[in-house]
Design a protein around this nucleic acid. Sequence first.
DNA 1: GTTACATTCAACTTTATGGTTGAATCAGAA
DNA 2: TTCTGATTCAACCATAAAGTTGAATGTAAC
Lengths: 115, 115
Amino acid sequence: MTQLNTVFQALGDATRRRMLRELSEGEKTVGELAAPFEMSLAAASKHIKVLERAGLIRREVRWRSRVCHLNPGPLASAQQWLKQYERFWTGRLDVLERLLREEDAAKTPDREGND
Amino acid sequence: MTQLNTVFQALGDATRRRMLRELSEGEKTVGELAAPFEMSLAAASKHIKVLERAGLIRREVRWRSRVCHLNPGPLASAQQWLKQYERFWTGRLDVLERLLREEDAAKTPDREGND
DNA sequence: GTTACATTCAACTTTATGGTTGAATCAGAA
DNA sequence: TTCTGATTCAACCATAAAGTTGAATGTAAC
């Protein structure tokens, strides 16, 4: 439902991540996208459909093939979501936050709804 | 296999993303994590296991409960992966890259292995 | 119109996911 | 030791995902 669900699910497969990387270097037809993988064309086509459903790529009918190209918007949303957590791995805010949390846990070991 | 697989898969579910957000505000027991959801404790426990398998959280046996806390490393890896694509949505590099790609496509419309 | 090519659809199998319930575990209090 | 509370395990169900094969579609070339 949430766009984030379909986007993260789509990214959770190495085949599809590889396809995105290929597309980051330029447009490719379905056949070209499928070529590096040892699976049937139908299987690759399904992966492409998953990427499309997640909004990560667009398919365009051109000459005799379908040409796919990257649509980066949803990747940006995913990164946006991860950005929330950046403070946990970058620099001193991390340490500061952890200290505050430990202090808090020490002060209120068994309560939950205090000011 | 790849850590990225399990991480992105884990993030592809709203329940688990919510759990991570809760943990970003401090440690929580399994019961506390499960409370906001209308599902059995066993189901929540499975979600927590998925997060743990992805390395996103650590479970520690303390007093009579299991206390969970965020382990941000894998989130950083995910963001790292997404960073590859940042140029597609930020600023002028985007436009520049697209121009180069179109130029390239126009020059070599039907070849694939040229220098 | 027929042939050939690129892609998708349909049907099917196997394995994974997300949920349920009830029993099992295991630490701490009585 | 027995009771209680917190969590997990086991077995099960329904649905989805990832792959296969073979037929169907649609456009280009002949």
